[in-house]
């Protein structure tokens, strides 16, 4: 099995996110980038599969700032190979929808028979990557996947999560595309020595063989949501806030043992 994992760098939601001049994008000059959380799970699941049944894992990213280091980290975590994919259209961020043909072409060229990526990203408002890829490649796909089990080598059984604690097992033939929500195990972080070793590796940069393609849709304004109707703020130090919360609970008879 050859697993291709598609990784994306996105704004760190734990840091400050400012709106850029012009009001249509975030200020990418100052924003902290981190690996998309769900892509991190996709990578973990790929390495997990490699460990339990043997598989080749290739991590790919559309080339850009911070990409080489992210792919070196993927190697340190257990990926066998990594590729940076160079695209011509580097004017601004490339949405998941727009990168779909590029990634699909890479899957075909690398000979991948399973593509894993995160179920969503904080920026994919024009479409999520996994189902878009499945449609372009003509491969079956499933989103919101929480575990992948290889069957006999030609099929896999995935767990797909629904709301209300409900999930279903779906069997898919390879090749297939999965949007991973949660890896089968918590994400493992690598040791410093492995990381240092991987930092010496140069990540091959290959030219995209398909063009970025974006339908006619655009962000005309990016803004902070209207806070009207938001919370009453409790001010003061921890003791003052604790007093206030106790009063709120007492007023609503929520301190009585039920």
């Amino acid at each position: 099995m050859h697993i291709m994992v598609v990784l994306r760098l996105v704004a760190d939601l734990g840091g400050d996110i400012e709106i850029a001049h012009g009001g249509k994008d975030i200020d990418r000059e100052w924003v902290d980038l981190k690996l998309n959380e769900f892509d991190d799970h996709a990578l973990e699941e790929a390495i997990f599969l490699k460990e339990i049944v043997g598989a080749k894992v290739t991590a790919i990213m559309i080339d850009g700032d911070g990409v080489e280091r992210s792919l070196q980290t993927a190697l340190a975590r257990g990926a066998d190979e990594a590729r940076r994919i160079a695209v011509d259209d580097t004017d601004g961020p490339i949405s998941s929808r727009a990168m779909t043909p590029v990634v699909a072409a890479a899957a075909a060229e690398l000979g991948a028979d399973l593509v894993l990526t995160g179920v969503q990203s904080p920026e994919d408002i024009f479409g999520q990557l996994a189902p878009s890829l499945g449609a372009v490649l003509g491969w079956p796909q499933a989103s919101a996947v929480s575990s992948v089990k290889p069957d006999d080598g030609s099929t896999i059984t995935v767990q797909q999560e629904y709301s209300g604690g409900v999930s279903a097992a779906i069997r898919l033939p390879l090749p297939a595309v999965l949007g991973v929500q949660t890896a089968s195990r918590p994400i493992r972080y690598v040791t410093g020595s492995k990381l240092r070793q991987a930092m010496a590796e140069e990540i091959p940069r290959i030219e995209a063989t398909a063009a970025v393609a974006m339908p006619d849709v655009e962000i005309v304004e990016l803004r902070v949501p209207d806070e009207a109707g938001g919370a009453v703020m409790l001010d003061g130090d921890a003791d003052a806030i604790a007093d206030e919360i106790l009063r709120l609970l007492a007023d609503r008879a929520l301190l009585q043992v039920c």
């Binding site: 939601l13 996110i17 408002i125 655009e218 962000i219 990016l222 803004r223 902070v224």
Partner: peptide, 8 residues
């Protein structure tokens, strides 16, 4: 954290 006004 943010919302986009999108035209399609």
């Amino acid at each position: 954290r943010l919302e986009a006004v999108v035209r399609a």
